[in-house]
């Protein structure tokens, strides 16, 4: 890893630590006990998963540069509320659509695969069951066409 990449990774980690504890979801009532949100460990589980994902991204030379000027605490919160809302949790994702968020950057097939790879690593680190991992991936995979080569 080159020097500045290392610095970048450390910066992301620092931002992560500083932003710890910020809550992404505003509870809107109790979701059913067996939905994906619950299987991901609810609000705390998703926060921990996104944290681990960011740690993986910070160490992934293929994509870490893409996050050079990104407001990490904001990105973290956006991702948390996005996963919370698509998994049936009690949150409303208030950001722009996947297409609008990612358009104009020309994210590549390699980069998309890299991010999915990092997510799988993060899910394994959190020891999420295979079934839960697959269900989350099934929800995220179709965003490929909104994100890649846009």
């Amino acid at each position: 890893m080159t020097g500045w990449l290392m610095n970048r990774s450390l910066l992301i980690l620092a931002a992560l630590l500083l932003s710890a504890g910020m809550s992404a979801c505003s509870p809107l009532g109790k979701p059913p006990a067996d939905n994906l949100y619950q299987r991901l460990g609810g609000e705390q589980g998703i926060e921990a998963l996104v944290y681990d994902l960011l740690v993986e991204i910070a160490a992934d030379e293929r994509i870490v540069e893409r996050f050079r000027d990104v407001n990490i605490p904001r990105f973290r919160q956006g991702l948390e509320s996005y996963i919370c809302s698509i998994s049936g949790g009690p949150c409303e994702y208030s950001g722009e659509s996947m297409q609008v968020v990612h358009a104009g950057h020309g994210y590549t097939d390699v980069e998309f695969n890299a991010l999915v790879d990092d997510l799988i690593r993060a899910m394994e680190k959190r020891q999420l069951p295979v079934a839960t991992q697959n269900r989350l991936l099934a929800l995220l995979a179709p965003s490929y066409r909104d994100i890649v080569y846009q």
């Binding site: 295979v130 079934a131 839960t132 697959n134 269900r135 991936l137 099934a138 995979a141």
Partner: peptide, 9 residues
Amino acid sequence: LLAGVADRN
């Protein structure tokens, strides 16, 4: 098919 059968791929 992700999670295509019994949540297995």
